[in-house]
Simulated scan of single mutants.
Amino acid sequence: MQIRPTLAATSALSVSALAAAALLTAAPAHAGTEYSSALKVRGVQYDAPGRDDNRCSGGNTSKEYVTVKNYSRTATVNLKGYVVKDKTGNRFTFTKSHTLEPGDYVRLRGGKGTDSDAKNVVYRNNCNFMWNNDKDTIYLYKPSGAHADTHAYTKSGNDRDGNGYIGFHN
């Protein structure tokens, strides 16, 4: 049985309600699962420029990063306790306080370095690559364990220019 709305039922809906319904059903180009969270994955440099070399001294793991952005217009968010994880279970937990003002972001880089709120960078202090160069899934969890954001990518499907970077929530 197919149910069709009648003209009277349709006209009862306001234009703004129809617009809101359309927005709810629209999906971004790199659709991930949408969760209610101010923090979202802005993008990932999943393939570090150059030949992959995970040596702590002279390697290029610090050129691989994920950017987490505070998309709230009003809320300041502390990253302490947030977790970034990949599909195979590699994970990083923000153990220190890093405050993101509305619109601010942080790049979580591989390798070793000095965290800097002024430079918007946190290092994993691990010289192994976290993101696969062909495909992977990025998970962002709130300190409570609830999902904040998730994005799956494939090199062939999402990296149109082949530069090793994919943006989300642009």
Rank of each mutant, 00 (worst) to 15 (best):
R124Y: 10
N133F: 05
N132P: 05
K96R: 15
E101F: 07
G162Q: 10
P5C: 10
P5N: 11
G59H: 15
A48N: 02
R73V: 02
V66M: 14
L39Y: 08
V77I: 12
S16I: 05
T74D: 09
D159G: 08
G162W: 03
V83Q: 14
Y153R: 07
P102C: 06
Y71M: 02
A8D: 15
F92H: 10
D149S: 08
L18C: 04
N78T: 01
S14M: 01
A146D: 12
T137N: 06
G58Q: 13
D47W: 04
A118H: 04
Y65Q: 09
Y153S: 08
R160S: 11
L100H: 10
R107I: 00
N90K: 14
M130R: 15
P143T: 04
A21G: 05
Q45G: 00
G145R: 06
A9I: 14
V77N: 14
N126V: 10
R42T: 00
D159M: 08
A118M: 06
R51D: 01
H98T: 03
T93E: 15
A22W: 05
G145C: 04
N60G: 14
A27C: 03
K87L: 05
W131H: 09
R160G: 10
T95V: 15
S97C: 03
T95S: 14
G103N: 08
T74P: 04
L39G: 01
N170D: 00
R55T: 12
K40R: 13
S97F: 04
A146M: 12
K40C: 00
V106I: 09
F94M: 06
F94I: 09
L39N: 06
T25P: 03
N60P: 12
Y139Q: 04
Y105T: 02
M130N: 13
T137V: 14
F94H: 09
T114V: 10
Q45S: 08
N158I: 07
F129H: 11
N133R: 07
N120D: 10
G162M: 05
N120P: 03
G50I: 02
R73Q: 13
D149Q: 02
T150F: 01
G167I: 01
G58R: 15
Y71E: 01
H98W: 09
S11E: 11
K40L: 00
N70C: 01
L24E: 03
F92Y: 15
S116V: 07
T25F: 08
F168L: 07
Y123L: 07
G167Q: 13
N60T: 09
A48Q: 01
R4M: 13
Q2H: 12
A29T: 04
V106C: 04
N125P: 08
Y35F: 07
G110H: 01
V84Q: 02
F94T: 03
A26E: 05
